[in-house]
Design a protein around this nucleic acid. Structure first.
Length: 510
RNA sequence: GGCGCAUUCGUCUAGGGGUCCAGGACGCCGCCCUCUCACGGCGGUAACACGGGUUCAAAUCCCGUAUGCGCUACCA
């Protein structure tokens, strides 16, 4: 028996055919939020019955993508659980047994038609304007005929019989009360007999999903809208087995900018790609949970536990939603701004090393502290992790010739040259300012020496020092440069500020 | 084609008969803060798909149309 006796049990059932996509991620998040909000269980089940496309490697990727998002599960293929196994490919006997029961109760039958034959007959009837339903050929086979063909080893699928004529034991009409969409009804005429078990012995989605959801005691099936019309078939299987149906909630699809279903051609769609391009898991979670769901107070920016506390299916929107990179990026910025530099550093070290800024195999405590200061200095200017490298590049890379070339009008005039000369002599005399007081003293000194106003003073210094017309406070830049040059393991020269200004002056003299 | 679902600013959404000549957020524009760039603050731009009903009153209820999407597979 499971340790958790809460009857709320939901599952996320991905097909392992590549990285987790944002659509699947949102479905997983909604399920997880529902479970955590109600104190129920969240089960992970791998739907790998399509052997052509499923791989164990993909399964590993999907699991790690889910973990990256901050999700955890109570039962799953990697951790087991009371209803193991949690991989459908390992549950064939179970499906086989249920299929047999459906055949003996008269709700299903062996079908010997091959795929090619079916294709042929389908295309033959297509232009007659008739719904392309199975023609019931094998349903009408005589019992001993069937027995004989099975005896002789003829390959066959198992097909479910949708009750059509009055007098059949089940009604083919189905109404569900979807938690997001309300009542949805289908008429029996809509459906043809459909395959339960393929001729290779693998169950189809519509069959295995019912068997597993029932056997795993799933209370709420929360899944994407593309499965809504399949629910008709599934409910019929529940009825034929005499099983109670779970509650259904069909979440709308995520669309690309052109309002078609989000897919690879819309650009990055896997959560792994977003992780790589510098999105924080908390921001991804925040954005995806907000896509189609709002808390009663309509908060936009929130941590995971806020969503757990406030999540409710009642407030999930039935209309499809366009994936908006802009808003994701904004949210990611908000999350970065709120995250401590020490935490940000964790996700940034590899990027810094990659940029060649770290020269030692181990990062010393001093170096780490210095990086955290630098992160703090530029944090509010970035919206993605990868932008930190661009925002901090000026600290490590400086080419006087290039800087002059790009800013000749501003740097190559008499006032600026004498200002920079003054600055050099100040730096030689007192060293680079490392405190607010020293910095103030320096700028006061420069102001009186040059006679320039504050506004005219700072831009030439900024550019001669960083090469850019934007960046953190000059005072912080001096301090960072000064401190960093005395820390081992950082790719910084000694006296970087002085060298840079001198370098520019040298270029000016040429 | 048939069936199903959906339709409020460019986008995410609030709203569920009167409080809505429709509120919030992203984006965009302007202003303020400021040595710069950002952050932040303030303001602006912009929507009830269309047509019929029902009602004293409709973004909200009903019907139809249009559009989009999904399903209609021995994919999930």
């Amino acid at each position: 028996m499971p340790a958790n006796h809460n009857p709320i049990r939901v599952r996320f059932a991905p097909s392992p055919t590549g990285h987790l996509h944002v659509g699947g991620a949102r479905t997983a998040i909604f399920n997880w939020l529902f479970a955590r909000h109600h104190g129920g269980s969240f089960i992970l089940r791998v739907e790998d019955t399509d052997q052509e496309r499923s791989t164990r490697e993909s399964e590993g990727m999907v699991l790690s993508d889910l973990r990256w998002l901050g999700l955890d599960w109570d039962e799953g293929p990697d951790i087991g659980g009371p209803w193991a196994p949690y991989r459908q490919s390992e549950r064939r006997e179970t499906y086989g047994g249920i299929a047999k029961a459906l055949v003996s109760s008269g709700n299903a039958y062996p079908c010997f038609c091959t795929e090619e034959e079916l294709d042929e007959r389908r295309s033959a009837t297509e232009h007659e304007g008739v719904a392309p339903h199975y023609d019931l050929r094998c349903y009408r086979l005589a019992a001993d005929d069937v027995a004989a063909r099975i005896e002789s080893g003829d390959a066959h699928a198992i097909r479910f019989h949708v009750p059509k004529e009055s007098g059949e034991s089940l009604d083919g009409d189905v109404t569900i009360d979807d938690l997001i969409r309300g009542k949805v009804t289908w008429k029996k005429e809509t459906l043809g007999d459909f395959i339960l078990v393929r001729s290779d012995g693998m169950p189809t989605y519509n069959f295995s999903v019912v068997v597993d959801d029932h056997l795993m005691a799933i209370s709420h099936v929360i899944r994407a809208e593309e499965h809504l019309t399949n629910t008709h078939r599934q409910v019929l299987i529940y009825r034929a087995m005499g099983w109670e149906t779970p509650h259904f909630a069909h979440v709308s699809l995520i669309l690309g900018e052109d309002r078609s279903k989000l897919s690879k051609r819309h650009g990055a769609t896997s959560v792994a790609a977003y992780a790589e391009s510098g999105f924080l898991p908390g921001a991804m979670f925040n954005y995806l949970s907000r896509l189609g769901w709002t808390s009663a107070e309509e908060r936009e920016f929130f941590p995971i536990d806020y969503a757990v506390k406030h999540f409710s299916l009642d407030r999930v929107n039935a209309a499809p939603a366009v994936f908006d990179q802009n808003k994701l990026t904004w949210l990611n910025g908000q999350h970065i701004h709120q995250t401590a530099a020490s935490a940000l550093y964790e996700g940034l070290e590899a990027r810094f090393r990659n940029a060649g800024w770290i020269t030692s195999p181990v990062v010393s405590a001093d170096a780490r502290r210095w990086f955290e200061e630098a992160i703090e200095a530029v944090k509010k200017k970035v919206q993605r992790l990868d932008e930190f490298v661009d925002a901090m590049r000026f600290l490590f890379e400086f080419d006087p010739a290039q800087v002059l070339e790009a800013n000749r009008t501003l740097l190559a005039n008499r006032d600026t040259t004498s200002l920079l000369k003054d600055l050099v002599s100040e730096l030689c005399e007192t060293g680079a300012p490392s405190s607010v007081a020293e910095y103030k003293a320096l700028t006061e000194q420069l102001k009186s020496a040059s006679g320039l106003k504050a506004k005219e003073l700072f831009m030439p210094i900024r550019i001669a020092l960083t090469g850019a017309d934007h960046g953190p406070d000059l005072q912080r830049i001096f301090a960072l440069l000064e401190k960093g040059s005395s820390i081992e393991g950082l790719a910084l020269p000694v006296e970087p500020a002085l060298r840079r200004i001198e370098g520019v002056l040298n270029e000016l003299r040429r």
